[in-house]
Simulated scan of single mutants.
Amino acid sequence: MSGDLGPLVITRRSGSEPIRANGETVGRLGDFWSWACSDLANNTMRGVLAEYLVATALDAAAGTRTEWDTVDIRTPEKWRVEVKSTAYLQSWTQPQLSKVSFHIAPTSGWDTHTGTTSAEVRRRSDVYVFCLLHHQDKQTLDPLDLDQWTFYVLPTPVLDEHCPNQKSIRLSSLERLNPLKTDFAGLQKAVAACAEGMR
C-alpha cells in the first residue's frame, strides 16, 4: 500500500475512455455518463449543471469540479462563488409546481488537501449565484436551454447581514435583498459587479 494518501490529481476526461473487464472493453465512460446523468431535472444533477453553467459564464470551467470544496467555483480573478439552484418543475409526478427556495445555511469548511473540517461555521464565498430554472411547462422543459433559466447574484455580505443564521430563503425574500437579476449572457458582468463592490 502506498504511503501517499493525499488528494488524487483529477484530470479531465473525454467520455471515450474504455470501461474494461479482463482486458476487454465492455463500455465507455460516456455510456456511464449517459446512464447516470441524463436526468438534468432532478435536484442533484440540476445543481451540478447550474454550477457548470455559472463556471462557464465566468471562464472557470476549464478544469474539473471539486466535490466538497468550501465554495463551488473559484474564478481566474480569485472570486469565490457559491451556486444554488432550484426549479418549479421536478422529474417526478407533482401535484403542483414546487415552491421556490434556496439553501443558504452557513457551513463548516472542508479542506480537500488536509482532509479536515473547520470548526468555524460561516459562508465562505464572495458572491452567491441563485439559479432558477423558471420554466413551468413540463412538456417543453429543457435545462440545457439557457433561456429557461434566470440568475440572481448577491454579495455574500448582504446575506450575512440580513440572514446571518438562516438556512433557506424564498424567492420573494431574496428579491427584497435587491440581487442583480440576469440571464446567462449578463451573468459574468453581474458577478463582477457584486464581487468587486460596484453595485
Rank of each mutant, 00 (worst) to 15 (best):
residue 41 A to R: 15
residue 167 K to D: 13
residue 156 T to D: 07
residue 146 L to H: 12
residue 54 V to R: 04
residue 126 D to S: 00
residue 103 H to S: 14
residue 133 L to V: 03
residue 123 R to T: 05
residue 62 A to Y: 08
residue 76 P to T: 02
residue 56 T to K: 14
residue 85 S to N: 06
residue 145 D to R: 11
residue 82 E to V: 06
residue 99 K to G: 10
residue 128 Y to W: 02
residue 174 L to S: 00
residue 142 D to M: 07
residue 172 S to E: 11
residue 157 P to M: 03
residue 53 L to K: 10
residue 105 A to V: 06
residue 57 A to Y: 10
residue 82 E to I: 02
residue 156 T to M: 03
residue 139 Q to V: 12
residue 163 C to S: 13
residue 53 L to S: 06
residue 152 Y to H: 10
residue 169 I to D: 01
residue 139 Q to M: 12
residue 167 K to C: 12
residue 171 L to D: 05
residue 139 Q to F: 13
residue 110 W to E: 02
residue 130 F to E: 01
residue 141 L to H: 01
residue 40 L to C: 00
residue 83 V to T: 03
residue 168 S to K: 04
residue 130 F to Y: 01
residue 128 Y to M: 05
residue 91 S to G: 11
residue 105 A to C: 09
residue 82 E to T: 07
residue 69 D to R: 01
residue 137 D to N: 15
residue 84 K to F: 04
residue 89 L to N: 03
residue 185 A to L: 08
residue 143 P to F: 00
residue 87 A to M: 04
residue 172 S to I: 15
residue 60 A to G: 03
residue 135 H to G: 01
residue 85 S to Q: 03
residue 136 Q to F: 07
residue 162 H to L: 12
residue 151 F to Y: 01
residue 147 D to S: 10
residue 45 M to G: 07
residue 143 P to Y: 09
residue 57 A to L: 12
residue 93 T to A: 15
residue 47 G to Q: 11
residue 75 T to L: 01
residue 103 H to I: 15
residue 49 L to N: 06
residue 109 G to L: 08
residue 79 W to D: 09
residue 66 T to A: 13
residue 148 Q to R: 02
residue 60 A to L: 05
residue 71 V to E: 04
residue 103 H to D: 13
residue 172 S to F: 08
residue 118 S to D: 06
residue 151 F to C: 01
residue 173 S to R: 09
residue 111 D to Q: 03
residue 136 Q to H: 11
residue 80 R to E: 11
residue 99 K to R: 15
residue 132 L to G: 00
residue 110 W to I: 10
residue 160 D to H: 02
residue 73 I to T: 06
residue 135 H to I: 02
residue 120 E to N: 10
residue 108 S to A: 11
residue 125 S to Y: 04
residue 103 H to N: 12
residue 102 F to L: 02
residue 100 V to Y: 03
residue 170 R to W: 12
residue 148 Q to D: 07
residue 83 V to C: 10
residue 47 G to V: 05
residue 63 G to N: 04
residue 101 S to H: 15
residue 98 S to Y: 12
residue 120 E to L: 14
residue 118 S to C: 03
residue 159 L to S: 05
residue 44 T to M: 13
residue 84 K to Q: 04
residue 114 T to D: 09
residue 68 W to N: 13
residue 44 T to I: 15
residue 123 R to L: 04
residue 67 E to Q: 10
residue 153 V to A: 00
residue 89 L to K: 06
residue 55 A to C: 05
residue 126 D to H: 08
residue 173 S to N: 13
residue 50 A to Q: 06
residue 60 A to C: 04
residue 148 Q to P: 14
residue 136 Q to G: 09
residue 120 E to D: 09
residue 141 L to Y: 11
residue 148 Q to I: 08
residue 135 H to T: 06
residue 180 L to F: 14
residue 121 V to E: 10
residue 181 K to W: 03
residue 71 V to C: 07
residue 124 R to T: 11
residue 92 W to I: 13
residue 102 F to M: 07
residue 140 T to M: 10
residue 89 L to M: 13
residue 72 D to K: 12
residue 172 S to P: 06
residue 179 P to D: 04
residue 132 L to E: 00
residue 156 T to P: 02
residue 55 A to K: 00
residue 92 W to D: 14
residue 101 S to Y: 12
residue 180 L to C: 15
residue 105 A to S: 14
residue 78 K to M: 14
residue 72 D to Q: 05
residue 128 Y to Q: 08
residue 49 L to C: 04
residue 73 I to N: 07
residue 150 T to H: 09
residue 125 S to P: 00
residue 174 L to Q: 02
residue 141 L to K: 08
residue 150 T to A: 09
